[in-house]
C-alpha cells in the first residue's frame, strides 16, 4: 500500500460517488460512474490486489458503463424528483444513517490493513501461501483459491451471473414469430449509416481484443485474470462490434440461439467437471482425480488442468451472458436496432 496515492484516490472516489448520485442527468451519472470505476480499479491495484483490479478494469471499462448507457438510451435521461419530502423517504434516510453509524463504529474493531496477527492471516493465508505450489503447481494463489480451494463458491458465482442473464432475458425479451425473426436477421446489412473511421479502426482492434481475452483466460495461472475477466473482455469485443456496425451484424456472427446455448454450455462445463470428479470416485470438484483420464499427468498437474477447464467454462458463460444482456438491454428486447 502506498498511502499517499491511497489518500488522493480515495478522496477522488468519494467525490465521484457524491457527484454520481447528485447529478440530475442520468447519462451524466452513468459517465461519472465510469470515472468512478477507473479510480476504483486504481485503488485496488494500488493496494496490491491485482486480480480484483483487473475485474474492475474489465467490467468497469468494458461493459458496466455501456450497460448503464444502453439502459438510459432505452428509458429516459431525467431523474424523477418529487418536490415534497414524504415520510417514507424520511424513514429511509433514518435507517440508512443509523446503519452507516453502526458500521463506522464497528469499523474501528477491524484489524489493521495487512496486520499479520489478524485471524485471516494467522491460519488461512499462510496455509495457502506455503502449500499452493506444492499442491496445485499454480503460481497465482488467487486463481488456485478461486478455482480450486473454494471452487464450489465460484461455481455458484457463475450461476448467479447466469441467473442474471436469464432474468434480463425473461423480463426484456419480446418474442416475435420465428420466420419473421429469421427474415429480420437475413435482411440486416452492414455499413448502414455508421461512421467510417470508427468502424474501420474498431475492425482492426476487435481481433486483438479477442486474442487478449483468450490470453487472459489461458494465463490465469501465471498472471492476474482468469475466466471472469477474459469472458467480459470477449463479450466487450462483441459489444464493440455491435456499437460500430449494428445489432444484426453481431446476430449474424453470434445468433441468439448459439448465445443461449453457449451460456448454458459454460455453466455445464463447470458443473460437468465437478460431476466427472464425482464419477471417478473423488469429491465434487476434486480435480486431482482427473489424472486417471488425462494422459501423462500427475494428480498435481491434473488440478492445474482442471482449473484451466473450469476457467474456460466460466469464460464461455460470462461472454454469452454479457452479449445476451447487452443485446436485450440496448434493443429493448426486440433485437431490432441497438444503441
Amino acid at each position: 500500500m502506498i498511502w499517499q496515492l491511497d489518500l488522493i484516490i480515495l478522496t477522488l472516489i468519494i467525490l465521484c460517488a457524491f457527484a454520481t448520485i447528485s447529478v440530475q442527468d442520468l447519462l451524466s451519472a452513468a459517465i461519472i460512474f465510469g470515472a468512478y470505476s477507473f479510480l476504483m480499479c486504481l485503488l485496488w491495484t494500488e493496494m496490491g490486489s491485482v486480480d480484483v483490479g483487473f475485474t474492475e478494469a474489465a467490467v468497469g471499462a468494458g461493459v458496466g458503463t455501456v450497460f448503464c448507457i444502453a439502459a438510459v438510451f432505452q428509458t429516459t435521461r431525467k431523474v424523477k424528483v418529487d418536490h415534497q419530502m414524504n415520510p417514507s423517504k424520511f424513514i429511509g434516510l433514518l435507517a440508512a444513517s443509523f446503519i452507516g453509524i453502526v458500521l463506522l463504529i464497528a469499523q474501528g474493531d477491524f484489524p489493521a490493513w495487512a496486520d499479520p496477527d489478524s485471524p485471516a492471516s494467522r491460519y488461512l493465508s499462510p496455509h495457502f501461501i506455503t502449500n499452493t505450489i506444492a499442491e496445485t503447481s499454480v503460481p497465482n494463489i488467487v486463481t488456485s483459491v478461486l478455482a480450486d480451494y473454494r471452487g464450489f463458491d465460484t461455481m455458484f458465482e457463475t450461476a448467479v451471473i447466469f441467473a442474471a442473464g436469464v432474468a434480463v432475458f425473461a423480463i426484456l425479451r419480446r418474442g416475435r414469430g420465428k420466420e419473421e425473426n429469421d427474415q429480420a436477421v437475413a435482411a440486416g446489412t452492414e455499413d448502414v449509416n455508421q461512421d467510417l473511421i470508427i468502424q474501420w479502426i474498431c475492425r482492426q482492434l476487435v481481433p486483438f481484443m479477442q486474442l487478449f481475452a483468450l490470453y487472459v483466460v489461458a494465463h490465469g495461472h501465471h498472471s492476474p485474470g482468469g475466466g471472469f475477466q477474459g469472458g467480459v473482455i470477449l463479450g466487450a469485443s462483441f459489444i464493440l462490434l455491435q456499437l460500430t456496425y449494428d445489432l444484426k451484424t453481431v446476430l449474424q456472427r453470434m445468433s441468439e440461439r448459439w448465445n443461449v446455448l453457449l451460456g448454458n454450455l459454460g455453466v455445464f462445463i463447470y458443473a460437468g467437471i465437478g460431476l466427472l470428479c464425482l464419477v471417478l470416485g473423488a469429491n465434487f470438484l476434486d480435480y486431482s482425480v482427473l489424472s486417471k483420464i488425462l494422459p501423462a499427468t500427475s494428480p498435481i498437474m491434473a488440478r492445474s488442468h482442471g482449473m484451466l477447464g473450469i476457467e474456460i467454462g466460466v469464460a464461455i458463460a460470462v461472454m454469452a451472458i454479457m452479449i445476451g444482456i447487452y443485446t436485450n438491454l440496448s434493443s429493448h428486447g426486440d433485437h431490432e436496432q441497438g444503441l
Binding site: 468494458g62 455501456v66 466487450a236 456499437l243
Partner: peptide
Amino acid sequence: ALLNFITTIAA
C-alpha cells in the same frame, strides 16, 4: 488501452 474507448463510443 483496449477497452477505454468502448464507453466513449457508446456514449
